[in-house]
Amino acid sequence: MRLADRIAPALLVLMTLFVFILLYGPLMVPIVSSFFTVSHGAVDWSQPTTSAYVALAANEGVLNALWTTLVVGSGAVVCSVVLGTGIALYYTSPNAKGRGFLQFIIFLPFLMPPIITGLALLIFFRQVEFERSLVTIIIGHTVFVLALVYRTILTRLQSLSGSLVEASYDLGASRWQTFRLVLLPNLSSAMVGAAVLAFALSFDETMITLLVTGTQSTLPVRLWAMMRLGFTPDINALVALVLLFTTALCLIAVRFLMPKSAVAGSDED
């Protein structure tokens, strides 16, 4: 019995370690190998180098793709935060109709396989003869990240006491004043957190982008194209950078979305 008591925790630790290695180990491979050169199909481990990163910085295609990605991400973030906030406010308003249906529609694109969402959008754009461009990518990404943004803001909104809004009206404030002076300040950190997460999602979205893009390519699409030509160190470098960037974004988002501690502010004097 005593032995089993001591072995069980050790086994649990080993299992956890194993899962972690399985999940995150493969991610280390491109990061590590991005610092080495490849010759004749084999990695040359003898000399670490940053040459892959230098090559990347000079690659105009990659730089253009990066720019497109940033534009698309920003566009999708702005659209989804504005829409998500509006819909969350509507959802919590006492006279809202069709709440369940609304929620279902918003969650659908997030839960469906991206290829279905992408195809549906593609067919839609064809039907209404909307030329595929940067705008269609932004629309596609907005549809995709809206559920997350909406849910994040709604959760914060629902955690606010309903009597805050009533108190604001009671003290003579109009609807707009109540939104600007009471709701917005209490939602802002959730909005920033949701925006960062949405940007991270948009940053590595590939499938929908591939289907609704015109001539532009975002970073992941570019990566996809580069890999068809063979695996080179600059691909590793690109993967490493994308990983680093999205991880950083997620860490930032968590900071904003963590429940506030007991102290809401500090003495100013």
């Binding site: 009597s163 108190a167 604001s168 009206y169 009671d170 003290l171 809401a264």
Partner: peptide, 18 residues
């Protein structure tokens, strides 16, 4: 509500946290 000459002290106080 915002035009009634009444003001309310709420059960949970409803103070604006920010």
């Amino acid at each position: 509500i915002n035009q009634r000459p009444f003001n309310t002290v709420f059960q949970d106080y409803a103070l604006f946290p920010h």
